[in-house]
């Protein structure tokens, strides 16, 4: 089984830690990098070229900005938004940055995990 490498970008430490634990508990997922803002997310994505980058919408520097840069500079990386905001405007904004999977914070863990696998599968 090929393991999926994952980058987490979120400015909220409690979310970063909980999310990385949830993903690490899955046998097929590897959290390779954890960033706390847009610039760090971009830098780590370029360095690790993860299969999936899970980005917070509202982290400093902007989730949409990070998504666009990562798509440019690490084209193999698929991007998933993980956001506390589910309104149409936020979803649209991420859509324009090339994000196809939008997961609202607060959904069950298994839905998060399923979404990560779905995004990665979209890459194949």
């Amino acid at each position: 089984m090929t393991r999926l490498t994952v980058l987490i970008g979120d400015d909220e430490p409690m979310i970063r830690e909980a999310l990385s634990e949830v993903l690490a508990a899955e046998p097929d997922l590897d959290v390779v990098a954890i960033a706390c803002d847009a610039e760090e997310s971009i830098a780590l994505a370029v360095r690790h070229e993860p299969a999936v980058a899970i980005l917070d919408m509202r982290m400093p520097g902007g989730g949409a900005h990070a998504a666009r840069e990562i798509r440019n500079r690490s084209p193999r990386t698929r991007i998933m938004a993980f956001s506390a905001y589910g309104d149409a405007r936020s979803v649209e904004e991420m859509g324009r940055a090339g994000v196809t999977e939008y997961v609202l914070k607060g959904v069950p863990n298994r839905d998060i995990v399923a979404a990560v696998r779905r995004v990665a599968a979209g890459a194949a």
């Binding site: 909220e12 409690m14 979310i15 830690e17 909980a18 999310l19 634990e21 949830v22 508990a25 509202r58 506390a84 905001y85 914070k105 607060g106 069950p108 863990n109």
Partner: peptide
């Protein structure tokens, strides 16, 4: 409420599920 309270509670929920 959004950026602090909700996020903390979401994290708590994720850990409870784990």
């Amino acid at each position: 409420v959004h950026d602090d309270t909700i996020q903390s509670m979401v994290a708590v929920g994720m850990r409870l599920q784990l």
